[in-house]
Every structure is written in structure tokens, then in C-alpha cells.
Amino acid sequence: MIDDETLERIETLAGLRLSPQQREKMRQDLSRILAYFQKLQEVPTDSVQPFDPLAGQTNAWREDVPRPSLPRDQALANAPATREGHFFVPPVFEE
């Protein structure tokens, strides 16, 4: 069972806020899912490397030549708030 402290820490890391009801449901769901996932510990993996989906392919370089990038107005077009050609965000540090 995931305790309150852990759940709160994960919520903060995930950038989510749950209501007390949602938090209880989330605790139950995650606890059950993680208990089921304990199954994985049965598999011995001592000398096994993590999976590489590209089967050893490395260094996919692109030509190192300058090319036009996304124009600023298009890059900002989906932003909920902009000011003077920049993304506008609330203060990150309190005074």
C-alpha cells in the first residue's frame, strides 16, 4: 500500500493536484497495479542489459547545415499567454 507521504510526493513530482476523493481512488488503483507488477521480480535479470529498440543502431546524424526554424509567431501561436513575442508565465520565485 502506498502511504500518504509517498502519494503526495509523487503528485508534486507529476505536477498534479488530486482532491481527497481522487487521491483515495488513485492510492487504491496504484497499490493494486503495483502489487500485480511485483510479479516481475520473479524473473532473474542479473547479467541482462536493458532493451534497445533500435538493435544497436547509433549516431543518426543530420547534415550540420543551418536551415530555417519555426517562425516565432508560429511557435507562440498555441501559447495561452504571450507578451512582446515571448511566452508569458506567472513568477517562478516569490519575492
Partner: peptide, 29 residues
């Protein structure tokens, strides 16, 4: 939200090797 929470937990300090790391190795097998 459930998957983000699950994934954040699996990647968080102290749990990485037990969950994500383990899963990527089982994936190789």
C-alpha cells in the same frame, strides 16, 4: 493521470532500478 502517477513513481528516486530498470531488462529477455 493514473499513468503519469504510475510512471512518475516508477522513475522516482529509490524505485527506478526496481521498476523501470527491471522492466527494461525483462524486455530484453
Amino acid at each position: 493521470k493514473r499513468r503519469i502517477m504510475l510512471g512518475t513513481y516508477a522513475l522516482s528516486a529509490g524505485f527506478f532500478a526496481r521498476y523501470y530498470g527491471k522492466a527494461q531488462k525483462v524486455r530484453t529477455l
